[in-house]
Write a protein that binds this DNA or RNA. Structure first.
Lengths: 210, 210
DNA sequence: AAGTAAGTTGACCCAAGGGTCAAGAACTGT
DNA sequence: ACAGTTCTTGACCCTTGGGTCAACTTACTT
């Protein structure tokens, strides 16, 4: 690869990182090219697809923070606290950074590294949930699929509210946590948990807003 | 107005009603015209704006059902049951009919009748919430703004899940109800309620999916 | 039955966003 | 310093959706 191409790729990565964090993974590619100061043709030439660009850029942005949240959640002595920490932390990351929000909720099947991150995050969530359930801290019928759906809707809410009520999502999180916490009244859920396939389908459509 | 124009307007209203219910208030106007069997020019000629069409068509679709839900909720002896009924019923309407979902969550400020419906629904919600709170049935810091935001995210979820997991939203509703129900552990919310203005802004952006 | 007003049509404009590619510019190795 | 390769550019094409309007058609009136 020629030196100037290398430089352009770097400029594009930088611009993409900025814009992804500012406005999510769906920013127009032409705008990324504009900010990088190159033609959009060059972007297509060097990366080919949005997914490839995402893969090179977003991994570093999101993976560490999500992993760290999971790790820290599991380091709590009290599983209930760890669980609450994890949910709040992930939602906060989503609210703070649209790129993270899209990593958690958007679906970009062609972005391999990104999908790997999602996989790891989901596994971590499952462990955190199960730990809390074994301790009897939260209702036993809550699943990691439920949590994912909640994250997706939370991401939409957080982004929509970012300018006007940047903490709106915290209320919804609080209601959820209250609802999950084992308490006296605890009826069984009338609806079966979703399958991973269902969640996959659902998220695809929630992400693209038709 | 000439007789043929009258007929066309009627065809357009019928087509719009169908498509609004099938796919929400954002269906392309040209598609409505296509289904009505007229040119899109005629649609613009007869109605001018999407809002005008919505106003003529959606009122009948949504108002009765929403009013009825509120009325029935207030007819429960137990305010707690009435509250739960209302939330579930509205969410169910949203899940069943994208037009209702958009009425509750979308913002079409130029559609007067529609905004009137929204206003009435919100007032009803406030009464239902306050009644439950006076009875000590639900946490006192839950507001009708919280409920609206919940409805909006619920609508997105329900629509996204419609084909794959049409009951997914019921789980989230159940978690919410559990969280609102007065129980032993009941910490104060760390975040202040939103103002109506904030809710107004937020919803505008949640509706248009950028 | 003809004249006129009213209504309809579809080609046309716009913008945003995705994507391609021939022509030209710019590196690099010798 | 020049040939040869690689890279960049921006004009171009596509689509979807909103919106307009001159020319045509249709219905009503007398």
């Amino acid at each position: 690869m020629r030196a100037d191409a290398q430089r352009n790729a770097e400029k594009l990565r930088a611009a993409a990182a900025e814009l992804f964090q500012e406005r999510g993974l769906k920013v127009p590619l032409k705008e990324i090219a504009r900010r990088a100061g190159v033609s959009h043709g060059t972007l297509y030439n060097l990366f080919g697809t949005r997914e490839a660009l995402i893969d090179e850029v977003v991994t570093g942005l999101a993976a560490d923070r999500l992993d760290e949240a999971a790790e820290h959640a599991l380091s709590f002595e009290d599983p209930r606290e760890g669980f609450a920490y994890y949910i709040e932390k992930v939602c906060e990351l989503q609210a703070t950074d649209p790129a993270v929000a899209d990593v958690v909720s958007g679906r970009y099947p062609a972005a391999e590294c990104l999908m790997a991150i999602c996989g790891r995050a989901q596994e971590a969530a499952t462990r955190i949930i199960e730990r809390a359930q074994l301790a009897g801290a939260i209702r036993p019928d809550f699943t990691s699929e439920d949590l994912l759906l909640f994250f997706v809707t939370n991401a939409l809410l957080a982004r929509a509210a970012a300018d006007t009520a940047p903490d709106a999502w915290r209320r919804q999180v609080a209601f959820l946590l209250e609802g999950l916490d084992t308490g006296p009244a605890q009826g069984a859920l009338a609806v079966a948990p979703l399958t991973p396939q269902q969640v996959y389908d659902v998220m695809g459509r929630l992400a693209g807003t038709p």
